[in-house]
Design a protein around this nucleic acid. Structure first.
Lengths: 247, 247
DNA sequence: GTTTCGGATTGATCCAAGTCAACCGTAAAA
DNA sequence: TTTTACGGTTGACTTGGATCAATCCGAAAC
């Protein structure tokens, strides 16, 4: 996937495709709402791409922060660690989503970002993003919305961790994944989990055995078909009922 | 609290005092790091003050968003509600902290902000803040840091809710409060809680009885003196040990 | 084709926190 | 001053999820 210099119209097109203006994720990602002219100015900034192999870190706690990352393809988890080794997965991120916002605050990263499959990200140097968003109002506003959306998402996770029972948590998680896959043009009903039961458990504040039992329960109830990491949702309403069924 | 036109030097001073440039919280709040000239431009924007009585809402879920709020004095909680009435307190906010960042994402508020004591906030119209931060780099960058800090704080809460035992949660909570009171020039060792045991419990993902028992335990161990809402921290190291003592 | 190994499942048991209930203390209302 | 009411404490008991442990399964390595 080496970058090819534009020699003729067709090849030019293929190069444009690797920039924001040609990226099919642009409506989910940072460029949302930008005009063509503005999009081209963003292209200049988002020039470097980085491949991350499954299991590798995109960044680690306490590394200096200087860029945020837009996921071009692949799947990530972010986590924070306690001194005694306890891990909390703070999120799973997929194509079009931004990583690294945690680093703005202290100029050091405060969580780890780890690829759960071979992935590709676009680096966005943060000082240049701030500069451009001083010039492009739409970009500025959209960036603020993205950060705010992350805060709102976090509130949802707090609600989940603070008040929901195990099966409600898992149902909420599955429906959220389904909805995000749908937004990316994939089946809402059938997908492969990229994370282990342990990672799901860490995210949901449960042990892996509890996650596994909840999967089995949903399977037995006929809400989903589970085969290891492959999930088929058979009864969305059943799951939705689980999501809110107190006791 | 009608605004008084400056007629002489003394009155001018008193007006300045009600603006950011004269506010003694400015180093904790939005104006952090601004030059005097920049500060004055921010003053124009942060002109309206609002008093909120104990128990009243500053804003509610689904109200249209158009401003963020800086707490001038007082104490707030923010919460989110599930359809069946379950409440999750997502944070407690004190002087110098910002409220309303959740609303940027959808242009509607997604949580409730409720005063836990008679309070006063400064309204900051958000479109004007964006405008000014396009002109003042320092303001833009600081605002981004504040949003990012909120995301990092949320990660800490997820860690607390996802991995810590009851007493670790309460110790973490008390030390966090203590640290924030210290930053505001109050005693680190002695303070009044503004929230009930139930609200603490909701924030920490515990029932009020469990919170009460944990307080009693800390009391019995000699870490703190508790008398209803009045707390005296007697042994910071003891509490810190609780914070990380697995089982 | 067989082995290996990490992840997933399932069962048996335990325990931290929830639930239910009684009672206490303090501050506001009468 | 007494009453009321709400928040807080404490005790007895229950329970959902953790823990411990034994397999199981499937993909990758041999």
């Amino acid at each position: 996937m080496a970058r090819i210099l534009p020699l003729n119209q067709d090849i030019t097109l293929s190069v444009i495709k690797t920039a924001c203006s040609g990226c099919n994720l642009r409506e989910l990602c940072l460029p949302y709402g930008l005009s063509l002219e503005e999009l081209e100015r963003l292209d200049d900034l988002v020039s470097t791409r980085r491949r991350i192999k499954r299991g590798d870190h995109l960044y680690r706690v306490s590394e200096p922060f200087d860029a945020i990352y837009a996921i071009r393809s692949g799947f990530f988890k972010t986590d924070v660690l306690l001194e005694d080794g306890r891990e909390q997965v703070t999120g799973f991120q997929m194509a079009g989503e931004l990583l690294g916002l945690d680093g703005i605050s202290t100029e050091y990263h405060t969580c780890n970002a780890i690829a759960l499959e071979d992935s590709e990200v676009c680096s966005i140097p943060f000082n240049r993003l701030e500069q451009l968003s001083r010039e492009i109002h739409t970009l500025q506003h959209h960036f603020h919305k993205v950060m705010s959306r992350e805060i709102v998402r976090d509130h949802g996770v707090m609600m989940l961790l603070g008040t929901m029972r195990a099966e409600e948590r898992l149902a909420t998680f599955l429906l959220n994944l389904s909805q995000r896959f749908t937004a990316r043009g994939f089946s809402h009903a059938e997908f492969n989990l990229r994370m282990t039961r342990e990672e799901i458990g860490s995210y949901l504040g449960l042990k892996l055995e509890t996650v596994s039992r909840a999967f089995s329960r949903f399977h037995d109830e006929g809400y989903i078909a589970v085969q290891q990491k492959h999930i088929r949702i058979l009864d969305v309403d059943g799951l939705k009922a689980m999501m809110s069924h107190r006791v």
